[in-house]
Amino acid sequence: MSDPLFLVADVGGTNTRVALAEGDRVRPETIRRYANSDHANLAPVLARYREEQACPEPLGACVAVAGPVADGRAELTNLDWSIDATRLIEATGARHAAILNDLQAQGHALGHVPADKCRTVIEGPVLPQESKLVIGVGTGFNAAPVHDTPHGRLVPASEAGHANLPVRNEAELRLCNFVSTTHGFPAIEDVLSGRGLERVYRWLATEAGTPDDLRAAEIMSQLDSNPRAEAAVRQFIRILGTVAGNLALIHLPLGGIYLVGGVARAMGPYLEVMNFDGAFRDKGRFAGFMSNFSVSLVNDDFAALAGGAAHLQEIVTRAGEI
């Protein structure tokens, strides 16, 4: 039997990517990107895609969204769209539909990411049967545990980016207070995100008495020429290591920790040299215990699509349709 046809989409705040998959394998030549501002909601995007690809009705459709999902319905955080399973079936003609948070989709992608798209950041034992953890750093911050069970893969949703920002020293307390003056509540996402990096840079400039703003891309491009940019990235990576270590102790992901997202990829070349490892392991008497966890960086911009396909494959397998 041939693999079933799936339609998968990854909806961000600015763009939506759509692709076809044969079973759990996304067909790279079918990936298309659409500007959300050109469409009233997701249904016209999917209709346009199906017309352009001359796509027959798929067996399943899965959408990953940058926002919370509850009861089969998603409300996007930075876009006035809502998506539910009923409308997804109407738009695609699929028999099976699934809506995932984008981090859940990344969790379902583990094991389906090409080996050359995954780089080890911290060496450690990897026990494939044990829980894993994906940590997403991009426009926002989030994390999701990944559990492989006898009944399939379970990736619970979470909103980890809205937990309190950790404070380890006097400088981080001042940063926390700086964030509080504008947001009222200093959350992890207020620092560990694209906008968060800009906020760290602004804090350093304010402390120096020379208020200054740079966009995140500008900060990264000036690392070799601007000491403040270098200090901002170093502070960012230090806090990222602390938060990743905290999440490791909460979830015990002995199957590995995986960093995903555009900002995580941008930080990739600097994680080792700016001591992400040291911050990750800095847990007092539990410092030695931290050697039980490996950390990898996923460099696959289409992993959420692969996760959607893998999730649909499990759904139709359990339904006995393949």
Rank of each mutant, 00 (worst) to 15 (best):
4 P>D: 09
11 V>Q: 10
13 G>L: 12
14 T>Y: 10
15 N>L: 07
18 V>H: 07
22 E>H: 12
24 D>I: 02
28 P>K: 12
28 P>N: 09
30 T>W: 09
34 Y>A: 10
34 Y>D: 06
36 N>P: 00
37 S>H: 05
41 N>A: 02
42 L>R: 08
43 A>C: 01
47 A>M: 04
47 A>D: 11
50 R>H: 06
53 Q>S: 11
54 A>H: 15
56 P>V: 08
59 L>E: 13
61 A>W: 06
63 V>C: 10
65 V>D: 01
66 A>C: 13
67 G>L: 14
72 G>D: 02
76 L>A: 15
81 W>H: 05
83 I>S: 07
85 A>C: 05
91 A>E: 00
93 G>H: 14
96 H>W: 10
101 N>I: 11
103 L>T: 15
105 A>H: 04
108 H>K: 05
111 G>D: 07
112 H>C: 07
113 V>K: 01
114 P>I: 08
115 A>Q: 11
115 A>M: 08
122 I>Q: 03
123 E>R: 04
125 P>S: 15
128 P>Q: 08
133 L>H: 05
134 V>K: 09
134 V>N: 11
135 I>Q: 06
135 I>F: 08
138 G>V: 12
142 N>R: 03
142 N>H: 07
143 A>G: 09
144 A>P: 01
146 V>G: 10
151 H>L: 13
151 H>K: 07
152 G>T: 00
154 L>N: 06
155 V>H: 03
159 E>P: 00
163 A>Q: 12
164 N>M: 12
167 V>I: 15
168 R>S: 15
169 N>H: 13
174 R>G: 03
174 R>I: 00
174 R>T: 11
179 V>R: 00
182 T>D: 04
189 E>M: 02
191 V>Q: 00
203 W>R: 01
210 T>P: 01
210 T>Q: 14
210 T>N: 13
212 D>L: 11
217 A>D: 13
219 I>N: 05
224 D>N: 13
227 P>S: 11
228 R>Y: 06
230 E>K: 11
231 A>P: 02
234 R>W: 04
234 R>Y: 04
236 F>I: 01
249 L>G: 05
252 L>D: 14
253 P>R: 04
258 Y>V: 03
262 G>T: 10
266 A>F: 04
277 D>E: 15
283 K>H: 15
285 R>M: 15
286 F>R: 06
288 G>N: 06
291 S>V: 04
291 S>F: 09
293 F>H: 02
299 N>Q: 05
299 N>P: 00
306 A>V: 02
307 G>P: 02
308 G>Y: 08
309 A>Y: 11
309 A>R: 11
317 T>L: 15
320 G>Y: 14
321 E>V: 14
321 E>Y: 04
322 I>H: 09
322 I>N: 07
